[in-house]
C-alpha cells in the first residue's frame, strides 16, 4: 500500500512536470501577451517596460525555470489581465464547475444504471428497445446543439427554467453552491442535463453490455440453483460484478466533464473554470492557463487514484501494488 502510494505520487509529479513544459512551450510560441495587454498606441518604451516587468524579455528556458522555481514555492504567478494570483482566480471558480459536473454524473448514474440493467435483463421488451435507441441518440447528439435546443424549449418557449448564470447561491463549507437554493437549482437543471445526456447514454450502453456478459456466467446459474430470485441475482450479484467498469467510466468521465465543461459553460454563461480559461487563452494570459491545466492534471491523477482505491472495495482479487 505504501509502495503503491509512493509510486503514485512520483508518477503524478512526472505527469505535472510534462504538462507544465508542454503548456509553457505552447503558450510561449503562440504569441506575445504584451501586445494584447497594451493599447495599440502604446510606445515602444512602454512595451519594453511591461515585458521586463512580466519577465518576458528572458529566453525560454530561463522563463520556464523561473516559473518552476516559483511554482515549487506554491506561486503560480499573477494573471496578466486581472493582476491577481492565477491560482485563486481558478480556485474561486472550481465550485461552479464541480457542481455542474457532479450533478451531471449523478443524474447519469441514477438513471443510467437501472435503465442499462433493465435493458440487459429484458432485452426484448419495448421499453428496453426504446432505452437502447434513446441511448444511441444520446451518444450522437452534439452537446452545443442539445444545450441550445434545451434552452429553446424550456426557457424560450415554455419559460420554465432560466437559461444563463448560476442564480442565487448558498454558502456551504466556504464554497458558493447553487443547489442550496431553489433559484440556484433551477439554474442548474438545464446545463446539468445538457452534460448528463451523453454520460447517461454511455452508462446505459456500458451497463447493458457488462450485464449481458455477467448473466451468461456459470455462477449466475448456480445462484439461481440456490433458489435466489431473479431480482436478487440481478440487482445484488450481477450488479456488484459490473460496478468495476462503471466506476472506471465515472472516474474518467468526471475528469472529462470538468475539462470540457467549456462548451456548456459558454452556452449557459456559467461562471466556471471553463469560461475563465477560454477567455485567458484568447488573452494569452499564460499564468492562468498554466495553473488551470496543472490543476486539471492533478485532478485527473487524483480521480484515477480514487478509482483504484474503490476497485479494491469492489473486487477482492484486486490489490493496490
Amino acid at each position: 500500500m505504501l509502495g503503491y502510494l509512493i509510486r503514485r505520487i512520483l508518477q503524478s509529479i512526472v505527469v505535472l512536470l510534462c504538462v507544465s513544459v508542454v503548456v509553457f512551450a505552447i503558450m510561449y510560441l503562440s504569441g506575445d501577451p504584451v501586445e494584447m495587454l497594451l493599447p495599440p498606441e502604446a510606445t515602444q518604451k512602454q512595451v519594453e517596460e511591461l515585458r521586463i516587468h512580466l519577465g518576458l524579455d528572458k529566453p525560454f528556458h530561463v522563463q520556464y525555470l523561473t516559473f518552476l522555481h516559483k511554482a515549487l514555492q506554491g506561486d503560480l504567478g499573477k494573471s496578466f489581465i486581472f493582476n491577481q494570483p492565477a491560482i485563486s482566480l481558478i480556485v474561486e471558480r472550481i465550485p461552479a464547475t464541480m457542481e455542474l459536473a457532479v450533478c451531471a454524473i449523478f443524474l447519469a448514474v441514477v438513471i443510467g444504471l437501472p435503465a442499462g440493467m433493465y435493458a440487459a435483463v429484458r432485452p426484448n421488451s419495448w421499453l428496453a428497445k426504446s432505452i437502447m435507441s434513446g441511448s444511441l441518440l444520446g451518444i450522437s447528439l452534439p452537446v452545443f446543439w442539445l444545450g441550445i435546443i434545451l434552452v429553446l424549449i424550456f426557457s424560450v418557449i415554455l419559460g420554465w427554467l432560466p437559461s444563463s448564470g448560476r442564480g442565487e447561491t448558498g454558502l456551504f463549507l466556504g464554497m458558493r453552491l447553487g443547489f442550496l437554493t431553489i433559484d440556484g437549482l433551477k439554474h442548474l437543471i438545464l446545463p446539468a442535463l445538457t452534460i448528463a445526456v451523453f454520460q447517461l447514454a454511455l452508462i446505459v450502453r456500458l451497463v447493458r453490455a457488462g450485464m449481458q456478459e455477467v448473466l451468461l456466467q456459470d455462477f449466475v446459474k448456480f445462484l439461481k440453483a440456490k433458489g435466489l430470485s431473479e431480482n436478487r441475482v440481478v440487482y445484488v450479484h450481477a450488479l456488484k460484478n459490473i460496478l468495476i467498469p462503471v466506476v472506471t467510466i465515472i472516474g474518467l468521465q468526471l475528469g472529462n466533464i470538468i475539462a470540457f465543461a467549456v462548451v456548456t459553460e459558454s452556452i449557459f454563461a456559467w461562471p466556471g473554470m471553463g469560461k475563465l480559461v477560454i477567455d485567458s487563452i484568447h488573452a494569452l494570459d499564460r499564468p492562468v492557463v498554466l495553473s488551470y491545466l496543472l490543476i486539471i492534471s492533478l485532478m485527473f491523477v487524483f480521480l484515477n487514484f480514487l478509482v483504484d482505491v474503490v476497485y479494491t472495495f469492489l473486487d477482492p482479487r484486486i490489490r493496490l501494488k
Partner: peptide, 23 residues
C-alpha cells in the same frame, strides 16, 4: 424458486466459475 436449493440442489462442474467472485 422455493424448491431449488432447498429440496433439489445442484453442484456444478467448474468450481472456478460457479461461485460469485466478489462475495
Amino acid at each position: 424458486e422455493k424448491i431449488r436449493g432447498n429440496r433439489i440442489s445442484m453442484v456444478f462442474q467448474d468450481p472456478q466459475t460457479s461461485l460469485d467472485p466478489v462475495f
